[in-house]
Amino acid sequence: MLDVRKLSKAFAGFVAVDAVSLAVETRQTTAVIGPNGAGKSTFFNLITGHLRPDSGQVLLDGRDITGTPPHRICRLGIGRSFQRTNIFTRLSVLENVQAALLAHRGRGHDFWSRSERFYRDEAEELLGSIGLAHQADSTAGTLAYGNQKQLELGIALASDPQVLLLDEPTAGMSATETREAMKLLERIAGERGLTLIFTEHDMEVVFSIAEKIAVLHQGRVLAKGTPAEVRADAEVRRVYLGERP
Protein backbone atom coordinates (compact mmCIF):
# COMPACT_ATOMS: atom_id res chain seq x y z
CA MET A 1 0.00 0.00 0.00
CA LEU A 2 2.43 2.65 1.25
CA ASP A 3 6.10 2.07 0.68
CA VAL A 4 8.61 4.54 2.08
CA ARG A 5 12.16 4.06 0.82
CA LYS A 6 15.23 5.55 2.48
CA LEU A 7 13.64 8.89 3.28
CA SER A 8 16.04 11.56 4.60
CA LYS A 9 15.64 15.16 5.67
CA ALA A 10 18.10 17.53 7.32
CA PHE A 11 17.48 21.00 8.74
CA ALA A 12 20.50 23.30 8.68
CA GLY A 13 22.86 20.36 9.11
CA PHE A 14 20.78 18.57 11.72
CA VAL A 15 19.56 15.26 10.35
CA ALA A 16 15.95 14.87 11.50
CA VAL A 17 15.07 11.80 9.43
CA ASP A 18 17.88 9.55 8.30
CA ALA A 19 17.25 6.96 5.58
CA VAL A 20 13.99 5.71 7.06
CA SER A 21 12.25 2.90 5.18
CA LEU A 22 8.83 1.55 6.06
CA ALA A 23 6.51 -0.67 4.07
CA VAL A 24 2.89 -0.77 5.17
CA GLU A 25 0.37 -3.27 3.86
CA THR A 26 -3.30 -2.62 3.21
CA ARG A 27 -5.51 -2.62 6.30
CA GLN A 28 -2.52 -2.97 8.54
CA THR A 29 -2.25 -0.81 11.65
CA THR A 30 1.24 0.52 12.19
CA ALA A 31 2.57 2.52 15.12
CA VAL A 32 5.61 4.76 14.78
CA ILE A 33 7.07 5.28 18.21
CA GLY A 34 10.15 6.93 19.61
CA PRO A 35 11.17 9.56 22.14
CA ASN A 36 10.51 13.29 21.54
CA GLY A 37 12.67 14.61 18.74
CA ALA A 38 13.09 11.16 17.20
CA GLY A 39 11.72 12.56 13.92
CA LYS A 40 8.18 11.17 13.97
CA SER A 41 6.40 14.39 13.02
CA THR A 42 9.00 15.20 10.37
CA PHE A 43 8.55 11.69 8.98
CA PHE A 44 4.80 12.30 8.65
CA ASN A 45 5.35 15.73 7.11
CA LEU A 46 7.61 14.16 4.49
CA ILE A 47 4.97 11.62 3.53
CA THR A 48 2.15 14.18 3.31
CA GLY A 49 4.12 16.70 1.27
CA HIS A 50 4.39 19.38 3.93
CA LEU A 51 8.15 18.96 3.69
CA ARG A 52 10.22 17.95 0.71
CA PRO A 53 12.66 15.12 1.41
CA ASP A 54 16.37 15.55 0.64
CA SER A 55 16.47 12.02 -0.69
CA GLY A 56 14.39 8.87 -0.77
CA GLN A 57 11.00 7.97 -2.19
CA VAL A 58 7.40 7.63 -1.10
CA LEU A 59 5.33 5.15 -3.12
CA LEU A 60 1.56 4.85 -2.84
CA ASP A 61 0.28 1.68 -4.52
CA GLY A 62 3.54 1.62 -6.45
CA ARG A 63 3.15 5.18 -7.66
CA ASP A 64 5.90 7.67 -6.81
CA ILE A 65 4.37 10.56 -4.86
CA THR A 66 7.59 12.04 -3.47
CA GLY A 67 7.46 15.83 -3.20
CA THR A 68 3.83 16.14 -4.33
CA PRO A 69 2.14 19.16 -2.65
CA PRO A 70 -0.17 18.42 0.33
CA HIS A 71 -3.46 19.16 -1.43
CA ARG A 72 -2.67 16.59 -4.14
CA ILE A 73 -1.48 13.99 -1.63
CA CYS A 74 -4.77 14.39 0.16
CA ARG A 75 -6.65 13.73 -3.07
CA LEU A 76 -4.60 10.61 -3.71
CA GLY A 77 -6.11 9.00 -0.65
CA ILE A 78 -3.86 9.84 2.27
CA GLY A 79 -5.67 11.46 5.16
CA ARG A 80 -4.06 12.92 8.23
CA SER A 81 -4.69 14.42 11.61
CA PHE A 82 -2.28 16.83 13.20
CA GLN A 83 -0.65 16.94 16.59
CA ARG A 84 -2.05 20.39 17.29
CA THR A 85 -5.78 20.19 16.79
CA ASN A 86 -6.51 21.33 13.30
CA ILE A 87 -10.13 22.17 12.60
CA PHE A 88 -12.01 25.14 11.14
CA THR A 89 -12.78 26.91 14.39
CA ARG A 90 -15.33 29.45 13.20
CA LEU A 91 -17.44 27.07 11.14
CA SER A 92 -20.08 24.80 12.64
CA VAL A 93 -19.24 21.14 13.18
CA LEU A 94 -21.44 20.16 10.26
CA GLU A 95 -19.88 22.81 8.02
CA ASN A 96 -16.42 21.48 8.88
CA VAL A 97 -17.28 18.07 7.51
CA GLN A 98 -19.31 19.47 4.62
CA ALA A 99 -16.37 21.64 3.59
CA ALA A 100 -14.07 18.64 3.57
CA LEU A 101 -16.58 16.68 1.46
CA LEU A 102 -16.94 19.60 -0.98
CA ALA A 103 -13.19 19.93 -1.32
CA HIS A 104 -12.67 16.23 -1.80
CA ARG A 105 -15.36 15.88 -4.46
CA GLY A 106 -13.86 18.81 -6.41
CA ARG A 107 -16.92 20.97 -5.84
CA GLY A 108 -14.89 23.95 -4.59
CA HIS A 109 -14.99 25.71 -7.94
CA ASP A 110 -18.75 25.99 -7.79
CA PHE A 111 -19.71 29.68 -7.52
CA TRP A 112 -23.41 29.32 -8.11
CA SER A 113 -24.93 26.84 -5.70
CA ARG A 114 -25.67 27.11 -2.03
CA SER A 115 -22.97 25.28 -0.13
CA GLU A 116 -25.23 24.18 2.74
CA ARG A 117 -27.32 22.09 0.37
CA PHE A 118 -24.48 19.74 -0.49
CA TYR A 119 -23.85 16.39 1.20
CA ARG A 120 -25.92 17.22 4.27
CA ASP A 121 -27.03 13.64 4.82
CA GLU A 122 -23.59 12.27 4.23
CA ALA A 123 -22.05 14.78 6.61
CA GLU A 124 -24.61 13.99 9.29
CA GLU A 125 -24.06 10.28 8.84
CA LEU A 126 -20.32 10.78 9.18
CA LEU A 127 -20.83 12.85 12.32
CA GLY A 128 -23.01 10.06 13.65
CA SER A 129 -20.33 7.49 13.09
CA ILE A 130 -17.77 9.52 15.04
CA GLY A 131 -20.29 10.37 17.76
CA LEU A 132 -20.71 14.07 17.11
CA ALA A 133 -24.22 14.13 15.63
CA HIS A 134 -25.68 15.97 18.61
CA GLN A 135 -23.09 18.76 18.22
CA ALA A 136 -23.65 19.33 14.49
CA ASP A 137 -24.71 22.97 14.84
CA SER A 138 -22.14 24.03 17.43
CA THR A 139 -19.29 26.29 16.45
CA ALA A 140 -16.28 24.02 16.16
CA GLY A 141 -14.01 26.29 18.20
CA THR A 142 -16.28 26.00 21.24
CA LEU A 143 -16.16 22.19 21.43
CA ALA A 144 -14.39 20.40 24.25
CA TYR A 145 -10.88 19.24 23.43
CA GLY A 146 -11.77 15.59 23.01
CA ASN A 147 -14.64 16.47 20.70
CA GLN A 148 -12.36 18.66 18.59
CA LYS A 149 -10.07 15.66 18.14
CA GLN A 150 -13.08 13.59 17.05
CA LEU A 151 -14.06 16.29 14.59
CA GLU A 152 -10.56 16.32 13.19
CA LEU A 153 -10.91 12.62 12.53
CA GLY A 154 -14.24 13.37 10.84
CA ILE A 155 -12.61 15.93 8.55
CA ALA A 156 -9.90 13.45 7.63
CA LEU A 157 -12.47 10.72 6.92
CA ALA A 158 -14.47 13.04 4.67
CA SER A 159 -11.63 12.84 2.16
CA ASP A 160 -12.31 9.12 1.97
CA PRO A 161 -8.70 8.11 2.58
CA GLN A 162 -7.21 4.67 2.13
CA VAL A 163 -4.31 5.49 4.38
CA LEU A 164 -4.77 7.55 7.53
CA LEU A 165 -1.83 9.15 9.31
CA LEU A 166 -2.54 10.21 12.86
CA ASP A 167 -0.01 12.28 14.74
CA GLU A 168 -0.53 11.58 18.46
CA PRO A 169 -4.30 11.11 18.21
CA THR A 170 -4.68 10.95 21.98
CA ALA A 171 -2.30 13.74 23.00
CA GLY A 172 -3.69 15.67 25.95
CA MET A 173 -6.48 13.18 26.64
CA SER A 174 -7.27 11.50 29.94
CA ALA A 175 -6.92 7.73 30.25
CA THR A 176 -10.65 7.21 29.71
CA GLU A 177 -10.78 9.56 26.75
CA THR A 178 -7.78 7.80 25.24
CA ARG A 179 -9.46 4.40 25.51
CA GLU A 180 -12.64 5.78 23.95
CA ALA A 181 -10.76 7.44 21.14
CA MET A 182 -8.77 4.33 20.29
CA LYS A 183 -11.89 2.18 20.36
CA LEU A 184 -13.52 4.61 17.91
CA LEU A 185 -10.45 4.52 15.69
CA GLU A 186 -10.32 0.73 15.62
CA ARG A 187 -14.00 0.49 14.81
CA ILE A 188 -13.82 3.03 11.98
CA ALA A 189 -10.65 1.55 10.55
CA GLY A 190 -12.39 -1.83 10.53
CA GLU A 191 -15.58 -0.54 8.91
CA ARG A 192 -13.80 1.41 6.21
CA GLY A 193 -10.90 -0.95 5.67
CA LEU A 194 -8.36 1.79 6.49
CA THR A 195 -4.65 1.45 6.63
CA LEU A 196 -3.64 3.26 9.82
CA ILE A 197 -0.28 4.73 10.69
CA PHE A 198 -0.07 6.55 13.99
CA THR A 199 2.40 7.94 16.47
CA GLU A 200 1.69 7.55 20.16
CA HIS A 201 3.32 7.98 23.52
CA ASP A 202 1.12 5.62 25.44
CA MET A 203 2.78 2.19 25.13
CA GLU A 204 -0.28 0.41 26.41
CA VAL A 205 -2.29 1.79 23.49
CA VAL A 206 0.47 1.01 21.02
CA PHE A 207 0.93 -2.60 22.01
CA SER A 208 -2.79 -3.24 22.22
CA ILE A 209 -3.80 -2.15 18.73
CA ALA A 210 -0.72 -2.00 16.50
CA GLU A 211 -0.03 -4.95 14.23
CA LYS A 212 3.33 -3.54 13.35
CA ILE A 213 5.64 -1.16 15.17
CA ALA A 214 8.54 0.94 13.93
CA VAL A 215 10.82 2.47 16.53
CA LEU A 216 12.53 5.71 15.56
CA HIS A 217 15.53 6.96 17.45
CA GLN A 218 17.53 10.05 16.49
CA GLY A 219 16.03 9.98 13.01
CA ARG A 220 16.86 6.33 12.33
CA VAL A 221 14.83 3.15 12.44
CA LEU A 222 16.00 1.32 15.53
CA ALA A 223 13.75 -1.66 15.03
CA LYS A 224 10.58 -2.71 13.26
CA GLY A 225 8.35 -5.72 13.35
CA THR A 226 5.39 -7.19 15.19
CA PRO A 227 4.75 -6.00 18.75
CA ALA A 228 6.27 -9.20 20.05
CA GLU A 229 9.42 -8.79 17.98
CA VAL A 230 9.84 -5.18 19.00
CA ARG A 231 9.22 -5.99 22.63
CA ALA A 232 11.93 -8.63 22.44
CA ASP A 233 14.48 -6.44 20.71
CA ALA A 234 17.40 -5.85 23.03
CA GLU A 235 18.32 -2.52 21.50
CA VAL A 236 14.78 -1.17 21.89
CA ARG A 237 14.60 -2.34 25.47
CA ARG A 238 17.85 -0.59 26.23
CA VAL A 239 17.27 2.75 24.48
CA TYR A 240 13.59 3.20 24.51
CA LEU A 241 11.64 1.04 26.86
CA GLY A 242 14.13 2.10 29.47
CA GLU A 243 15.16 -1.33 30.69
CA ARG A 244 18.67 -2.28 31.58
CA PRO A 245 20.08 -5.52 30.26
Binding site: N86, L91, A103, S113, S115
Partner: peptide, 23 residues
Protein backbone atom coordinates in the same frame (compact mmCIF):
# COMPACT_ATOMS: atom_id res chain seq x y z
CA UNK B 1 -22.59 31.28 0.22
CA UNK B 2 -21.41 28.98 -2.56
CA UNK B 3 -19.09 26.01 -2.11
CA UNK B 4 -16.33 28.29 -3.39
CA UNK B 5 -17.08 30.75 -0.58
CA UNK B 6 -17.11 27.91 1.92
CA UNK B 7 -13.64 26.91 0.77
CA UNK B 8 -12.47 30.50 1.34
CA UNK B 9 -13.72 30.38 4.92
CA UNK B 10 -11.79 27.19 5.57
CA UNK B 11 -8.64 28.99 4.35
CA UNK B 12 -9.41 31.89 6.68
CA UNK B 13 -9.82 29.57 9.66
CA UNK B 14 -6.89 27.29 8.99
CA UNK B 15 -4.86 27.37 5.76
CA UNK B 16 -2.78 24.34 6.76
CA UNK B 17 -5.83 22.15 7.28
CA UNK B 18 -7.50 23.60 4.18
CA UNK B 19 -4.60 22.32 2.09
CA UNK B 20 -5.13 18.92 3.61
CA UNK B 21 -8.74 18.59 2.70
CA UNK B 22 -7.42 18.84 -0.85
CA UNK B 23 -7.50 22.57 -1.57
Amino acid sequence: RSPFGRMLTTIRDNPERAAFIGL
